[in-house]
Design a protein around this nucleic acid. Structure first.
Lengths: 115, 115
DNA sequence: TACTGTACATACTAAAAGGTAACTATTAAA
DNA sequence: TTTAATAGTTACCTTTTAGTATGTACAGTA
């Protein structure tokens, strides 16, 4: 048997939800259930089209999100979470809770108005 | 009031425990309570001295770990978790659990023998 | 006198991640 | 005929993160 599943499984999870944008995209998908490309660009103003597409493609390949294309013009593409993507929610929530506690204790003022 | 604490607090947490080695270091500290530099190098064979020192310093600065120097030769320095560092444990555990489930479902074989 | 053990530091290089700007395709409406 | 709307792609550049190799300090032991 495996001595400790830590290293690999932690790194696996970190690889799939790490990076600058994935957590945020997942969070909005948790919130809204279904989102289109343009809606995400509006929800996450500082992300670029390139980064959004790139992160969505990676998460689709990893089976965290679903991509549904409607054959029409102008194009319509909808994104939503798979069960694996939904299962990540408690991790995101705990990370937020920890961050809130930490910021409170360290007196870190975070202005997240733009969102 | 803040519209959504997500972006910033999630990013804050990710900044503090992300990267290639921090989670692993924290995990070993959870396990052993107190560790010295050399012990960590042995527990994490693929880490280099430079990366270990760098990550330890960052986590010390962020208040996740404690560094105690004994004034003796050859030098002795002990590392342990602060309360904030200990509070991260459930996040690490959930990340591992999710990774295990995901790997099982996707038939990803992970050989973590070296650890 | 040279070597050992412990815990570093530093300069340099390589690789990964992220960002910018400009371009593509399609159909309908003005 | 030009413009709008949507969802991209691509080439190039910058920044961040990680890795390699070598050097430092000090007291005790061989």
């Amino acid at each position: 048997m495996i001595q400790s599943p830590f290293n690999c499984h932690f790194e696996l999870t970190l690889e799939l939800i790490g990076g600058k944008w994935k957590g945020l995209i997942l969070w909005h998908l948790h919130d809204k259930k279904v989102l289109r490309n343009g809606e995400m660009l509006r929800l996450i103003p500082r992300i670029t089209q390139k980064m959004l597409t790139q992160q969505l493609r990676e998460m689709e390949e990893n089976g965290l999100i679903r991509r549904v294309i409607y054959e029409q013009v102008p194009p319509k593409v909808e994104y939503s979470l798979t069960p694996h993507g939904e299962a990540i929610r408690p991790i995101l929530e705990m990370m937020i809770d920890w961050g809130v506690e930490y910021a409170k204790d360290k007196n870190i003022l975070i202005a997240c108005t733009q969102q």
